[in-house]
Nucleic acid binder design. Sequence first.
DNA 1: CCGATGCATCGACGATTGTCAACATGTCAG
DNA 2: CTGACATGTTGACAATCGTCGATGCATCGG
Lengths: 116, 116
Amino acid sequence: MAKTTIPAHHDTNDAFDSCCPTVLSSALSVDEAEDLAKVFAALGDPVRLRLLSMVAEAREVCSCDMIEPLGKAQPTISHHTKILSDAGLIRGDKRGRWIWWSILPDRLAALRNALA
Amino acid sequence: MAKTTIPAHHDTNDAFDSCCPTVLSSALSVDEAEDLAKVFAALGDPVRLRLLSMVAEAREVCSCDMIEPLGKAQPTISHHTKILSDAGLIRGDKRGRWIWWSILPDRLAALRNALA
DNA sequence: CCGATGCATCGACGATTGTCAACATGTCAG
DNA sequence: CTGACATGTTGACAATCGTCGATGCATCGG
């Protein structure tokens, strides 16, 4: 239990990172649509989008440095990082007291592919 | 008032089709994040994703033909087509009694670009 | 003109979501 | 050990969302 790496949750939406359903070429199944929708919904909040862009810009950010720029309380930041982490979009690395968040580019690439 | 083309609503999110904010390269402004989030939120529902993929697959579909495959009542289909239309993702063309929905590829391309 | 059809709108309902205060847990400095 | 700090968790609240029945407005066929 002394691992320094958070397993990035990785909930249920593993259905489309083995291979990638595309929205436009073929009709989506119910399961594919639910998995994809969960990731798009994670991007469907302005605070989370700004959080994501901050992480991408700085390559590594701790939660405490996002409270003031985002103008939200600490539990709210924690809530949003969890949603993005569950969606496989970011990943948290705990070093000491801080958690350093970074982008997981694979899921973003899969999304881009799904819109092709 | 006898036009056969629906103006595709085109609400407020014109901010990012003039030129395209990217999530990963620079920190998003509050306005950019809100506009982008609205479109991602439109994709954040499994029924809307399947609706979108049906429209893309058939190139043109009327609402009546989506009621049974999607398993939702007519007002619900109408609700979802309006959301996708407001997001600039689809466009409805009224011909006779039917409205034929088709994909608007530009907004999808902008989204793909925003994830690059 | 009349009945049927396709769709939008309205109103209502339960479910989900974004937000934060309060609290709990774990980590570091002294 | 103790106090300060960073973060996750819980519970509560208002707001939004997805859904559908009822209704209204066009349009078509006869």
